[in-house]
């Protein structure tokens, strides 16, 4: 089902963890649909000095998170922004078709982190909601009930 590259990144994920004094954080996805990716970036002179991730999700979600951190570590922010979800999937030698939309969100998290850092607007495309019946309101209600 998964390529060797995916299984490698799933088994030995690179850059797992949290950066306490992160300069930028990007989080996408939601627990309702089963994927949350959170990236922590340390930025100096427009360059990504360090990057770590925490991910809730399936094998593809974890592997794409790991791959994106590897692809952008040490890169200039403008260069990092050129990386898309598609780039990540290709670097992993492809993902199974159903995973392309629902678990391939790592580059979105990266873009969100950088745009937030630059005070730019980030418009999140909700990949999940394109395909499922959930809307944000339902998700919010559910999360609120859960936290009670």
């Amino acid at each position: 089902m998964y390529s060797e590259e995916v299984m490698d990144h799933f088994n030995n994920p690179r850059n797992v963890g949290k950066i306490e004094d992160a300069d930028a954080i990007g989080e996408v996805g939601n627990p309702v649909c089963g994927d949350i990716i959170k990236l922590y970036l340390k930025i100096k002179d427009e360059q990504i000095e360090d990057i770590k991730f925490k991910t809730f999700g399936c094998g593809a979600a974890i592997a794409t998170s790991s791959m994106v951190t590897e692809l952008v570590k040490g890169k200039k922010l403008d260069e990092a922004l050129k990386i898309s979800n598609q780039t990540v999937a290709e670097a992993l030698n492809g993902l199974p078709a159903p995973k392309m939309h629902c678990s391939n969100l790592a580059a979105d998290a990266l873009h969100k982190a950088i745009k937030t850092y630059r005070n730019e607007e980030f418009v999140e495309i909700d990949h999940h909601c394109e395909h499922s019946n959930f809307c944000h309101k339902e998700i919010k209600i559910e999360l609120e009930e859960e936290s009670k």
Binding site: P31, V32, C33, G34, F56, C58, G59, A60, P98, K99, C102, S103, H128, H131, S132, E142, L143, E145, E146
Partner: peptide
């Protein structure tokens, strides 16, 4: 889980016994 159920939703059984999605 949704990933193994072939849909985006987790099992209808687990939702029916009152579990939230996550």
């Amino acid at each position: 889980s949704a990933c193994t159920s072939g849909s985006l939703d987790p099992s209808h059984v687990l939702l029916a016994i009152g579990h939230p999605h996550e």
